Computed example of a mutant assay.
Amino acid sequence: MDPITAVAVAGVALIAKGTLEATGQEAGRAGWGGGARFIERLRARFRGDAEAEEALEQVRQRPEDTVAQDALTRLLLAHMLRDRDFESEVRRAVDAVAARGGRGQVNAAVIKNSQVFNEKVEIKGDWNIS
């Protein structure tokens, strides 16, 4: 997965997690209070793009729906690719979670089969792929 796609996937996972936290389904495990702010920022960004607005609402209504998450990821990625400043903004929001110890807060239980890379991966020694 390329880095910009990973950021989009992580951003959608943060939206889903923020929605779950707001509804109390993850009470006691809240690790990111910026979920609502991030959602409002995306609402403002998506204003006028009916498909993106609907995708965001679908994830808010059903945060564990992987089909809705995939649709929102695709649209978020498209907006990020069109506007590098917006991409940087989303990247900063995702990085802020990691900087506050958010590692593990965006987890497989929330994002299901998506892969998210929040940290640098280092490989030392011999490494063979067959």
Rank of each mutant, 00 (worst) to 15 (best):
Arg62Met: 00
Ala68Cys: 03
Glu64Thr: 13
Ala78Gly: 09
Val97Glu: 00
Ala78Glu: 13
Val97Pro: 05
Ala98Pro: 06
Arg91Gln: 14
Arg74Gln: 11
His79Arg: 13
Met80Ser: 06
Arg74His: 11
Gln61His: 04
Asp85Glu: 13
Ser88Gly: 15
Pro63Ser: 00
Arg91Tyr: 14
Thr73Ala: 08
Val67Pro: 01
Arg74Asp: 10
Glu89Arg: 14
Phe86Gly: 02
Ala78Ser: 12
Val97Ser: 07
Glu87Trp: 14
His79Val: 05
Leu75Gly: 04
Thr73Phe: 02
Arg91Ser: 12
Val67Gly: 06
Arg62Ala: 06
Glu64Ile: 02
Ala96Pro: 07
Asp83Gly: 04
Ala68Phe: 03
Gln61Cys: 00
Leu75Lys: 15
Phe86Pro: 03
Glu87Arg: 15
Ala93Pro: 06
Arg62Trp: 02
Val90Asn: 06
Leu75Ile: 04
Leu72Cys: 05
Arg60Trp: 01
Arg82Ile: 01
Arg91Met: 09
Asp95Leu: 07
Leu72Lys: 04
Leu75Tyr: 09
Leu72Asp: 03
Glu89Cys: 05
Pro63Asp: 00
Ala96Gly: 12
Asp83Gln: 07
Leu77Lys: 15
Thr66Glu: 00
Glu89Gln: 15
Thr73Cys: 07
Val90Pro: 08
Glu64Ser: 10
Thr66Asn: 02
Val94Gly: 05
Asp83Leu: 04
Asp65Met: 03
Asp65Trp: 03
Arg74Asn: 10
Arg62Gln: 09
Arg91His: 14
Ala71Ile: 06
Ala98Ser: 07
Ala71Pro: 01
Arg84Gly: 06
Ala96Gln: 13
Glu87Met: 10
Ala93Ile: 10
Phe86Met: 04
Asp95Val: 03
Leu81Ala: 10
Ser88Phe: 12
Glu87Ala: 15
Asp70Gln: 11
Ala98Tyr: 15
Val94Asp: 08
Arg62Ser: 07
Val94Phe: 15
Val94Cys: 08
Asp70Leu: 08
Val67Cys: 00
Gln61Pro: 01
Asp70Val: 08
Asp83Pro: 09
Pro63Ala: 00
Asp83Ile: 07
Val97Ala: 06
Ala78Gln: 14
Val94Gln: 11
Leu81Ile: 11
Thr66Phe: 03
Arg92Gly: 03
His79Phe: 13
Leu81Lys: 15
Ala96Tyr: 07
Met80Asn: 08
Arg92His: 13
Asp83Glu: 08
Arg74Ser: 09
Glu64Gly: 05
Arg60Met: 05
Thr73Asp: 07
Leu77Gly: 04
Leu76Ile: 07
Asp95Pro: 01
His79Asp: 09
Ala93Gln: 13
Ala71Asn: 10
Asp85Asn: 12
Arg92Ser: 09
Pro63Gln: 00
Gln61Gly: 06
Asp83Phe: 08
Asp70Ala: 10
Asp70Lys: 12
Ala78Tyr: 08
Asp95Met: 05
Val94Leu: 09
Val94Lys: 12
Arg91Asn: 12
Ala71Cys: 01
Ser88Ala: 15
Leu75Glu: 01
Glu64Tyr: 09
Ala68Trp: 02
Ala71His: 11
Arg82Leu: 09
Arg92Asp: 07
Leu72Phe: 09
Arg82Pro: 05
Gln61Ala: 08
Thr66Pro: 01
Leu81His: 12
Gln69Asp: 00
Arg92Glu: 05
Pro63Glu: 00
Asp70Arg: 13
Arg60Tyr: 01
